[in-house]
Computed example of a mutant assay.
Amino acid sequence: MTAALKVVRAGLFDTLQDLGRVGFMALGMPTAGAMDRVALRLANALLGNPAGTAGLEIGVMGPDLLVEADSVRVALVGPISPALIEGPDTPPKALETDRTHLLKRGQVLRVGMVEGSSTAYLAVAGGFALPSFMGSLSTYARAGVGGFEGRKLAAGDALPLSLEQAPPGDDRKLGAPFDYGSGPVRIVWGPQEEYFTAAGRNIFVGSDYRVSREADRMGIRFEGPTIAHATSVEKGGADIISDGIGPGAIQVPGAGLPIVLLADRQTVGGYPKIATVASVDLPRLGRLLPGQTVRFQPVTVEEAEKLRRDQESRIARAIADFKVARPPGGIDLARLYEENLIDGVVYERSPG
């Protein structure tokens, strides 16, 4: 019998994603990959997987997964409230997130809602036993390639596991939730900032913009003050000769409202790009929901590079600070042994 996680109830938009399909944009193939690469990397690190192992990206609401294996160890990272269902007549038992859990055959993991965010991640020890496409397991649903049959998960799907049972060892958890930062989203001007008026650029970085309902893995269309394009003969209008689009590129079409392009972005485009989101803040964009507001703040290329290096150092510290996690409802013997359980000793002389 092949070890698997079976979808007994589908979530809203759950797809397999790794760190992306790199090297094929010249052929018109988008990179896809995790919207929040930090969370996926932490989930894999908790399990001892390579950083690029594909995991399940949970979009807004996750699935119910039946364990069809002797055992499997999963890691859940992100703002979710998972639960474990032991049997048909057993009420769900709440589980912690930002840690691993050892699951047994017949149990059902209810991944639950993603609270205040659009994405969370589930990884499994050893990864999923699925064929790669162009060197990646990332799902690009628009073309129907990668992941599980090139699409989001549906009820009845069985995700094959690479391991028949969980490897030995303790469960682990993050020492503290990872800090993604707050405040304005940092951007680097360009590559076509000269296609916009000085007033338009000032409006862009001086205004609040709200995430519209047109937000998905391809990009986020923002609502707010319009940004004026330049009108000179050389640099004017809302059209350019199509060129390559990197992660976080911010296009501004003729309507004057910014669109931030994300994991499933097209490879080329013909609208001018006023700026590009610094890579340090891309995971934050992957967590935004419609109605939330952001402000953009320009930084230099050198500042953006330093912010990214600092983030890598924080990821390394978070991994080094993993803790042993006690089983749900159980006793953490390691912590217990560390405590001084004897407050004092009283000797009593026996009579006589």
Rank of each mutant, 00 (worst) to 15 (best):
F204S: 06
P177I: 09
S212A: 10
L174I: 12
G147M: 03
L5E: 04
V77T: 08
G183F: 00
V7R: 10
P168T: 13
T300V: 09
A34S: 14
L336V: 08
P131A: 13
R151I: 04
A123N: 07
A51D: 15
A230M: 10
F322W: 11
I319R: 05
D157K: 00
V124N: 04
S136E: 08
L5N: 04
L5F: 03
L47C: 06
M218F: 09
R213L: 11
P92R: 12
Y337V: 10
Y121P: 05
L336Q: 15
P50I: 04
L122H: 03
A263S: 14
H101W: 02
V301T: 12
N202G: 12
L161S: 04
A275V: 09
P290F: 14
A51W: 00
G59H: 03
P177H: 09
A320S: 15
R349D: 15
L288M: 07
G219L: 00
A154T: 03
V22K: 12
I241D: 07
A10N: 11
P168K: 08
W189I: 01
P92M: 05
Q107K: 00
G127Y: 02
A320M: 05
P131L: 07
E96G: 15
D179T: 10
L76E: 04
A316T: 14
G87R: 10
Q251N: 09
R186T: 15
G48H: 05
L19D: 06
N202I: 02
